[in-house]
Write a protein that binds this DNA or RNA. Structure first.
Length: 220
DNA sequence: GACCAGGCACATC
DNA sequence: GATGTGCATGGT
């Protein structure tokens, strides 16, 4: 059996960057809200939006259930796409109350596969958002895939370019022990690598993984 | 000013 | 089933 390149990369990134302490957030609920707000958006902008919600005393399930969509949109403006994200947050919160009366303790009893299906049925919650919620808010063993994951995996020829979400997720899940802490740290490290080195149009000259096979394509 | 950022739904072919 | 488009602020 060939040695596990996926695990090797993890060790390299951890040695290089150290623990990332993800997900930044003070509560499970805040993490779930952040997962929707960060869709295709810089985290710094999300923090501004979350602070607005906190300062307005709106960052609770009950408050978000009651708030008008237009008012919510105004508060989350810095996160971008604020109208559509306000609707998505509302869709999420309506599901949360509809299914679980807005109580985390009920939601936490549900099996991971069922929960994932339910999350994906919410308009505005796709695979990455659902998996971020499952892993980072609810400590379930699912590997989160994002654009960084796809870019890094494609450039280092870990997978065929154009691989879809499920294929990328399987690549990592099948080669790692099913460990929440490992999945948590690995995804965060990939984001760190993507932000600092594996950029869309960067040559990655100082890439920590540069000893690996590497093929730059600007499509990734 | 261009480019990018921890996506997703929907239209169209 | 694949591909294109709208959504939007803020940092580099």
């Amino acid at each position: 059996m060939q040695n596990n390149k996926i695990m090797e990369i993890y060790q390299l990134l951890l040695d290089r960057f150290g623990q990332q302490h993800w997900w930044p957030g003070e509560s499970e609920f805040e993490i779930m809200v952040g997962a929707i707000l960060t869709q295709n958006t810089n985290w710094g902008n999300v923090e501004k939006a979350i602070n607005n919600l906190k300062n307005a005393n709106r960052l609770s399930p009950e408050s978000l259930l009651k708030i008008q969509t237009a008012e919510l949109a105004e508060l989350i403006k810095p996160a971008g796409y604020y109208n559509i994200k306000a609707k998505r947050l509302k869709n999420f919160i309506n599901w949360f109350f509809g299914q679980y009366n807005g109580k985390l303790e009920y939601l936490e009893r549900v099996g991971t596969d069922t929960l994932r299906e339910e999350l994906l049925s919410i308009k505005g919650v796709g695979a990455e958002t659902a998996d971020s919620i499952l892993l980072y808010a609810l400590a379930r063993n699912v590997f989160v895939v994002d654009t960084y994951t796809a870019r890094i995996a494609a450039r280092h020829q870990l997978i065929e370019p154009g691989a879809d979400y499920e294929e990328l997720q399987y690549l990592f899940e099948s080669r790692l022990s099913s460990d929440t802490k490992l999945f948590n740290e690995y995804h965060a490290l990939l984001v760190k690598l993507g932000k600092d080195y594996c950029k869309p149009k960067a040559r990655c000259s100082n890439c920590p993984l540069k000893h690996l096979p590497y093929k730059l394509t600007f499509e990734y």
